[in-house]
Design a protein around this nucleic acid. Structure first.
Length: 580
RNA sequence: GCACCGGUAGCUCAGUUGGAUAGAGCAGCGGACUUCUAAUCCGCAGGUCGCAGGUUCGAACCCUGCCCGGUGCGCCA
């Protein structure tokens, strides 16, 4: 199963060799034939547009070229089994219509494959995915959800395509804020509040200490001394810092559990602390280190990226230095082909700088910044200072609460415990899907209703379609215990069945597209279309009341739909309950 | 000022890198539960793809200029 190609790729190969047969010695070596899905099903299932592109090279009319390609495809009957019709249309499009019986065979051949026919393009490749990365001593808020949810989907997608994935939660657990927090903690901490809600209390302490530092220079100086003590390994401060990290992690873990997110590594910035001086040495040896206004920088003016500061005037290191140390460490330990960084758009310049420095150093890894649009509120950006942040915990609670309301009214016969389970899957699923179904790079204005939409193009729509199929399958098993679906072919007699079959066979294309382009919404779109086609089908034909033979083949088909929906939702990190 | 991103139906957004008559959801209007989950389905209506040029067989997509919004641009991360 590992060598399966997508349908488009398979047909592209046929066209490629047909081209060389039809026009020997005339096709440029680098020309790659492409057969792509049609935008409009009226034009067929797939189309090839190469005749137009080749018109200039071959100095022939596009339709003439198209005719020659079709002839070469048909002469050795290359595509006879796979393709039921080939037509030339318009200026020179070649339209392919797939043979439904061939598609049905294809579905049977991929049914037992856990990857459902997805080519293992990541085999023998390692990718590190750096995402979520909240700051210690601050609660996670709605600004963290996109990185976490998108990063996690990319994580799952890459594993599915055969990559060895190392997900790494690069915590903000080191930096200048700890001087203020330690000092603030000693003076302002409220033990009861710390007990009840540790991170909230730590944040309060930080905010108060920060405020005091603005009006009290002595306080600021003391904070700096506390920071230096921490950095020099002072036992007392180190113990406090460890406590802050542990308390924060405890709360982050609760959120990650609810979101179904797990990391292979949690190496915060502090992990690389000892490597920082070595970064400077390496830059210096490469002749990249220059002094500027008392700071040590890498000059990127030639790349129009300004300068990248790697050591501040006060001798401290910063973000860029830590990121460089992190890359060196990851390359040394894991030899990744690619490292993905999933952060918001504001960091684009930082990553361009830092990637450029890596390139100059000859670091052998493909670095990708997968950025997403900043989440904002209708009244503008949110910030701790404005006091308008929405904590992630509150958001998750509200999502589950809203879902529970719907579950109670729509499925009153489910037991209470199951209602809660369903509400959790539906509420959290809706929240994730709202983020995953759109282009990550678009701006997002947060509204409660939008973030947890429960109808239309939403997770519950997909979950509902899935649960409905499971329900039908269970009823079928109860009513027709003699039916053995294993012997049935998936139904492909009616147009909606053919459309569903083709859709199922295209699952790998959706997965690969989403993975290659770092765009989970390609998969979300696909799943929505699949569920919609199923819902139409569900409405238009009987299942349990259809004739013997037909019944089994319909069951087989819709079981494949349910399995594909479940697999696809899982890739987005969304649960698919058996009943909703 | 420079850089990056966005501008598509009343609202929220897709549109996989240049393909054929631009699609969904929500909101609106009209239909479908004695049948397998109505969290559903079917239909109607809704568009100068920000504006103006250009490139070519063909542009929402590529190029140039402009308008509007967002974000960033040396010691925060």
């Amino acid at each position: 199963m590992k060598n399966t190609k997508t349908l488009g790729a398979e047909m592209s190969l046929y066209v490629q060799s047909a081209l060389h047969d039809a026009f020997p010695q005339m096709i440029p070596n680098d020309f790659e034939a492409a057969v792509v899905p049609t935008a409009d099903p009226r034009n067929g299932d797939y189309q090839c547009n190469d005749a137009m592109a080749l018109a200039k090279i071959l100095r022939k009319a596009p339709r003439e070229i198209a005719a020659a390609i079709v002839e070469a495809l048909e002469r050795p009957a290359r595509t006879a089994e796979m393709v039921s019709s080939l037509e030339i249309a318009g200026p020179g499009f070649i339209n392919f219509r797939l043979n439904p019986e061939w598609v049905a065979d294809r579905l049977l051949s991929i049914e037992d494959d856990p990857c459902r026919g997805t080519p293992q393009v990541g085999e023998a490749k390692t990718v590190v995915i750096d995402y979520s990365s909240p700051n210690v001593a601050k609660p996670m808020h709605i600004g963290h959800i996109r990185s976490t949810v998108i990063g996690n989907a990319l994580d799952r997608l890459h594993r599915f395509c055969g990559f060895r994935v190392l997900s790494d939660n690069h915590l903000g657990d080191w930096g200048t804020q700890f001087g203020l927090i330690i000092l603030g903690y000693r003076h302002f901490v409220n033990p009861e509040a710390l007990e009840a809600s540790p991170v909230q209390e730590l944040e309060r302490v930080y905010v108060e200490s920060y405020r005091k530092s603005k009006e009290d220079d002595a306080w600021m100086d003391q904070a700096r001394r506390e920071l230096v003590k921490l950095q020099q390994g002072d036992e007392e401060n180190l113990a406090l810092w460890k406590k802050f990290v542990a308390l924060s992690m405890g709360e982050f873990e609760k959120i990650y559990d609810r979101l179904g997110v797990r990391f292979d590594l949690t190496r915060g910035e502090s992990y690389y602390n000892a490597d920082l001086p070595g970064v400077l040495t390496r830059l210096d040896e490469a002749g990249l280190l220059v002094e500027s206004d008392g700071a040590m920088v890498v000059d990127l003016e030639a790349e129009t990226l300004g300068v990248c500061i790697v050591r501040k005037t006060d001798g401290g290191f910063n973000y860029a230095t830590t990121d460089l140390a992190t890359v060196f460490s990851r390359v040394r330990d894991f030899e990744p082909e690619t490292i993905l960084y999933v952060t918001d758009e504001r960091q684009q310049r930082h990553f361009r700088q830092f990637f450029t420095v890596c390139e100059k150093l000859g670091v052998d890894v493909n670095l990708e910044h997968v950025w997403f649009g900043l989440m904002r509120l209708p009244e503008g950006t949110f910030s701790t200072r404005e006091g308008n942040v929405i904590k992630l915990e509150v958001l998750l609670d509200e999502a589950e609460r809203r879902a529970l309301e719907i579950v109670r009214s729509s499925s009153p016969d489910l037991p209470e415990a199951q209602q809660r389970d369903v509400a959790r899957a539906v509420g959290i699923g809706a929240l994730k899907y709202a983020d995953l179904c759109q282009n990550p790079q678009s701006l997002v204005t947060f509204t409660w209703d939008k973030a947890m939409a429960l109808d239309g193009n939403s997770a519950p729509y997909l979950q509902y379609a899935h649960a409905r199929i499971r329900s039908v399958l269970d009823k079928h098993a109860a009513q027709f215990p003699a039916d053995t679906l294993g012997d049935a072919r998936p139904a492909c007699a009616l147009p909606p069945e053919q459309a569903l079959g083709l859709k199922l066979a295209r699952f790998p294309e959706a997965v690969l597209g989403a993975t290659r382009h770092y765009r989970p919404n390609y998969l979300a779109d696909y799943l929505y279309e699949l569920a919609r086609e199923y819902s139409t089908y569900h409405q238009s034909v009987p299942f349990l009341k259809s004739d013997d033979g037909v019944r089994e083949s319909r069951m087989r088909l819709i079981r494949m739909v349910a399995d594909t929906l479940k697999t696809g939702l899982d890739l987005l990190g969304i649960e698919a309950p058996e009943r909703i």
